[in-house]
Write a protein that binds this DNA or RNA. Structure first.
Length: 569
RNA sequence: GGCUCUGUAGCUCAACUGGAUAGAGCACUUGACUACGGAUCAAGAGGUUUCAGGUUCGAAUCCUGACAGAGUCACCA
């Protein structure tokens, strides 16, 4: 049975501890544990630019990687670029048809945004085409045919009823008008039931996009050239965004290289009896004894599906890097997929199977509701970054604390502060929770924010510039601590353990919260106790050492979140 | 419908993994050293931790059952 044990750590212990660590610029980082871990994050499609959802993914992935590194792992950061498939073909087709040969240079548009524009254009044209067809004889005939299917209609009516309820609630919440006629059976049919079939079987544009995909798969030269060109534009755009965010990767995997992987593994698994073949020739794995379902891994025509590729890619990565662990940073909508994937790899006897982890995170909502790319309610990554930096600039100008510095130096600081606001705002929330992203709040620089933590560090730098260079050996004579000092040292003491736990739990938010608590306590200490004008030389020297310790800790902690510390702000 | 995640102050989030009187920030009210940097600090107000049971010395946390929101249950990726 557990109870309470109130023990008092002596001041002598704390002072000795501070003496040990105050000069350690690497404080909080663990020695190498000889293990290697791969972290996959970002993994965008190449048909549109990055948005707020990617930003949460990227920040989580990057900080998880930094934390694992600090905990002693060798880390390999990778992304899988989804550079092939029907989506990019849509962009390519729309570009061919409507752009008149526009390039990022000629249009004055960032490459990823340009390609995204043509993806949107495709969807618009497709919608026009589809709506016209719906009113045609063929469209109405399909509708009538479906309406005659009692079972299907019944199911649809049930779904519609729920959708109506939801729409009504939302309208009430937002104070907007609720239109009860917006959700009809006809609209439901064309939007949710028949759209794919239309795209695949009737649509002119759909035919053309699919034809392009076939040409791509056949290696048609002209198609490949266009594909390379447009993806090249996208990569230039992505690189700029990554650079602004301060992230980079050790290795890129391209889906165009890996999409055929995994078939050999399936065949081998078939021989070993891990998979089974149905009469039609399709191949499956039975995971019902692991409380999962049967899952198809090869179609009857022998082509692979998403999970087949993932099996092959995992093996490829192990062959490339020999990692002990692999972490996949992917949104929680794929929770089930990763359960199935990991269980499958386990049964295949992959050596890294016990080190697989899905760092699952909740979607990002806006105050107005869900982000939907089709409805144009996504927050663009580049816009968002520009906004927080602009806000930081406005703040800096108002305070006028940087005017002595060169323009470049000022810009660098402003960038660090703006990004700190954005990054901290997102990382402080536990990954598994859905988060509401209010753009207004994300640029806040007061209270529980990145700039607040930076400010504590900047204050320390200011103090140290004025008094940190002197001989601090007088600190040894300081033996009776103030509460605030004790508390700060105790927090420093806890930091390495917290880093280890954050690594084990893949939880950057705990590091963010630690940094905030430490900064908060420092601010209070700073307010209540004079450092440079302390009562005694001993107190002054001791507090300066404490400042060093806190500064190293804050800097390292924030570095693990991908947040840089300025010396002034 | 099955399964998974979430539900804590008006809002955004914590709570050392079962511990003491559930804590911060924002917003609101009121204060602070002629400055070691006020992007700070202090105070006030704000709670039946969605609800109902259970487990035990003790529950926001674990179990059961409701309720609400989200996701998923593709030969899509």
């Amino acid at each position: 049975m557990k109870g309470f044990l109130n023990l008092v750590v002596s001041d002598a212990y704390w002072t000795a501890f501070l003496q040990d660590i105050w000069q350690d610029e690497q404080y909080g980082r663990h020695a190498s544990n000889g293990k290697k871990v791969m972290v996959e994050f970002s993994s965008p499609n190449t048909n549109k630019p990055l948005h707020l959802g990617h930003i949460r993914n990227i920040l989580l992935g990057w900080s998880a990687a930094q934390i694992l590194e600090a905990a002693g792992y060798e880390v390999v950061k990778v992304q899988v670029v989804n550079d092939r498939g029907i989506a990019i073909c849509k962009s390519m087709l729309a570009w061919e048809k409507y752009s008149g040969g526009a390039t990022p240079e000629s249009a004055g548009t960032k490459g990823d945004h340009l390609v995204g524009q043509y993806y949107v254009r495709f969807e618009q044209e497709f919608k026009k085409e589809y709506e016209a067809w719906q009113q045609s004889g063929a469209g109405q005939q399909q509708l009538q045919q479906w309406m005659a299917d009692e079972k299907a209609v019944k199911k649809a009516e049930k779904e519609l009823e729920e959708a109506r309820k939801k729409a009504k609630n939302e309208a009430e919440r937002k104070g907007t008008e609720y239109d009860p006629d917006a959700l009809t059976l006809e609209r439901h049919f064309f939007k949710n039931v028949y759209k794919n079939t239309y795209f695949n079987e009737h649509s002119q544009l759909g035919q053309q996009a699919k034809a392009m995909l076939l040409k791509w798969e056949a290696g048609d030269e002209e198609t490949m050239q266009l594909w390379k060109q447009m993806n090249g534009w996208v990569y230039e755009g992505f690189d700029k965004t990554y650079e602004k965010l301060g992230v980079e990767f050790d290795k890129l995997y391209f889906e165009s290289d890996t999409y055929l992987l995994g078939r050999d593994a399936v065949r081998q698994g078939l021989d070993k009896g891990i998979f089974y073949e149905k009469e039609d020739g399709s191949v499956w794995i039975d995971l019902t004894d692991a409380k999962l379902d049967h899952k198809l891994v090869l179609r009857k025509d022998g082509t692979s599906v998403y999970i087949t590729q993932d099996i092959g890619t995992a093996q490829q990565r192990y062959a490339d890097f020999g990692v002990d662990k692999m972490v996949y940073v992917v949104a929680d909508e794929q929770d089930y997929h990763f359960q199935v994937l990991f269980e499958t790899l386990r049964r295949l006897g992959e050596p890294y199977a016990d080190g697989l982890h899905h760092l699952s995170y909740g979607m990002v909502d806006l105050p107005t509701g869900k982000m939907k790319s089709r409805e144009g309610t996504v927050v663009d990554a580049d816009d968002l970054i520009a906004e927080v930096i602009a806000e930081a600039r406005a703040n800096a100008e108002e305070r006028d604390t940087l005017s002595g510095l060169s323009q470049d130096a000022q810009d660098a600081i402003i960038r660090k502060v703006g990004l700190a606001a954005l990054k901290f705002f997102i990382i402080k929330v536990q990954p598994q929770k859905r988060m509401t992203f209010d753009p207004k709040d994300s640029v806040d620089m007061q209270g529980q924010t990145g700039p607040y933590v930076q400010n504590a560090y900047v204050r320390i730098q200011s103090v140290l510039r004025k008094g940190g260079e002197q001989d601090l050996s007088a600190a040894e004579a300081y033996t009776e601590l103030q509460d605030a000092e004790r508390e700060l040292i105790a927090q420093l003491f806890a930091f390495p353990g917290l880093v280890r736990e954050a690594a084990e739990g893949y939880d950057p938010s705990s590091v963010a919260n630690f940094c905030y608590e430490l900064a908060k306590n420092y601010h209070r200490f700073y307010h209540d106790h004079s450092i440079l004008n302390a009562d005694s030389e001993a107190a002054k020297a001791f507090r300066l050492k404490l400042c060093y310790g806190v500064a190293h800790c804050l800097k390292n902690g924030m570095q693990m979140l991908g947040i840089e510390m300025p010396d002034r702000m």
